[in-house]
């Protein structure tokens, strides 16, 4: 009997060892149909500034992605007719392409589109946006703006509103140990008593960032703190096409010496839902343990994307050594 048990122990340990050596992961190919190409709208109307819309096309999931600016040029849609209606009158937006601009303005335009200072720009790059400097279209708090666009024969519509402004109560910087110069910015906010207040936050470092960067995680909704005073912290979003953000430790953090402009905007619920689901869809690829996220677009007609109204307030914070 003892002899049998001893033998069994030997066999058991040998078997466990064998089983542990096998690997269980391999690469597979998936066939994706070509038909998954959609029109995508990214439209903004913010208080005090002109509305603009960028129209792009989606590409296949397994097509290689270039992090170079030419990738954006390949998907930009041109030749569309875009209209915005406010106070009952419809106005047509102008299509402005980089090639049309005088050299002096091109630099500004690049920055506007998110191409940072100093990034390599391929020749014949032709990016286009739709906008209008018509004063009647300058964003005003409380107004409703309707979008209508005809792209390649199909019509798409959307509607949004610039909600009432809400200011942050305070802003301060706090270092994140073990560093003594890098950290996050913290803010306090008093949420108005109404249900459904939603916010989006963006930052821009003076002389470093060409434009305001909001990323996709910086949206919030007052479901958890309606009418209350709440405190939260946030990091720094990185520009997708950036070539200068190279120091790994500094990515995502603010540094002593930065002058940061914080843009805190109010948004309406459908716009919040878009940015929230967008954030979930970009975080972490296809998580097998979750259900696939369908981004909730507020565009009607079968397109993706968002047409959003933003009520912006600005604060400046100089990050001082602590």
């Amino acid at each position: 009997m003892e002899f049998q048990i001893l033998n069994m122990r030997k066999i058991l340990s040998l078997m466990v060892l064998i089983a542990l050596f096998v690997s269980c992961e391999k690469e597979i190919t998936i066939e994706v149909p070509d038909s998954a190409r959609q029109i995508v709208f990214e439209g903004y109307v913010e208080n005090g500034t002109f509305p603009y819309v960028i129209i792009t096309r989606s590409s296949g999931y397994f097509d290689p992605i270039s992090t170079q600016v030419s990738a954006l040029a390949e998907v930009i849609v041109r030749g569309a007719d875009v209209y915005v209606t406010v106070d009952g009158t419809e106005y047509k937006l102008d299509q402005i392409c980089l090639a049309d601009l005088p050299d002096s303005l091109q630099g500004l335009a690049y920055q506007f589109l998110g191409i940072p200072v100093g990034a390599p720009i391929p020749p014949n790059l032709d990016l286009c946006v739709y906008l209008s400097f018509n004063p009647a279209l300058t964003g005003q708090v409380g107004k409703r703006y309707d979008l209508r666009a005809v792209v390649e024969g199909n019509e798409y519509t959307a509607t949004t509103r610039i909600p009432e402004l809400v200011n942050l109560d305070s802003l301060w910087f706090k270092v994140e140990p073990p560093s003594d110069s890098l950290g996050f910015i913290w803010a306090t906010l008093t949420d108005p008593d109404t249900v459904g207040n939603s916010y989006r936050l963006a930052t821009k470092r003076l002389n470093e960032d060409a434009r305001f960067l909001a990323g996709r995680g910086n949206v919030s909704n007052d479901r958890l703190f309606n009418g209350q005073k709440v405190q939260f912290g946030f990091g720094r979003e990185v520009e997708f096409f950036s070539t200068s953000d190279t120091i790994e430790d500094e990515i995502g953090k603010f540094k002593v010496g930065d002058t940061v402009i914080v843009k805190f905007t109010t948004i309406e619920l459908p716009v919040y839902r878009f940015w929230q689901t967008c954030g979930q869809a970009t975080a972490g690829g296809a998580n097998p343990f979750g259900s696939p996220i369908l981004v909730e677009s507020n565009i009607q007609g079968g397109a993706r994307g968002v047409w959003g109204g933003y009520g912006a307030t600005f604060d400046t914070l100089i990050v001082l050594p602590q």
């Binding site: 994706v32 998954a36 792009t56 590409s59 296949g60 999931y61 520009e239 690829g285 696939p292 993706r304």
Partner: peptide
């Protein structure tokens, strides 16, 4: 359900999924 397409929003990439359960695992 698998992702089939992607697009740019605010300089980042967003994934788009296929019709529900339209793919088969091995």
């Amino acid at each position: 359900t698998l992702p089939v397409a992607r697009y740019f929003i605010d300089g980042a990439i967003v994934n788009e999924y296929s019709d529900r359960n339209s793919y088969r695992m091995g």
